[in-house]
Nucleic acid binder design. Structure first.
Length: 104
DNA sequence: ATCGTGACGAACG
DNA sequence: CCGTTCGCCACGA
């Protein structure tokens, strides 16, 4: 229960509504600045019961873009959820981390 | 313990 | 800013 994944989920839960963070940022907070990839893997493997409690949609890549490993359905849902939280997307579906990035 | 894999990231060009 | 290349980490088989 004290796995890296647990830490990732815990940190992700701390992201305030209306803001987004990045895999790398979370990895750093989890204690492994170079494990951004593992963070993505963690959220990809996010259990359904956690899907309802963990705001996974607030985690995007360092370019401010959504990554969904080809699963367009998830990407659309993610964008929809973020929009409903007040996140503004650019014309190329990118979020301004300068404005919505967390922590600042 | 080893290998392959992947929602990533920084450095380059 | 974009695509490519290489490096890093944790996980499951």
């Amino acid at each position: 229960m004290d796995s890296f994944y647990m830490t990732v989920y815990n940190i992700t839960t701390l992201i305030p509504s209306g803001m987004v963070s990045t895999y790398g940022r979370i990895a750093a907070m989890a204690g492994s600045p170079r494990a951004a990839r593992a963070v993505g893997y963690a959220l990809h493997s996010l259990p359904e019961d956690q899907l309802a409690t963990v705001p996974w949609q607030r985690v995007i890549n360092s370019r401010g873009k959504i990554s969904s490993s080809g699963d367009s359905g998830r990407a659309v849902l993610q964008k929809k959820l973020l929009l409903s939280e007040g996140i503004i997307f650019g014309g190329d579906d990118t979020v301004s981390l300068k404005e919505f990035g967390w922590p600042r």
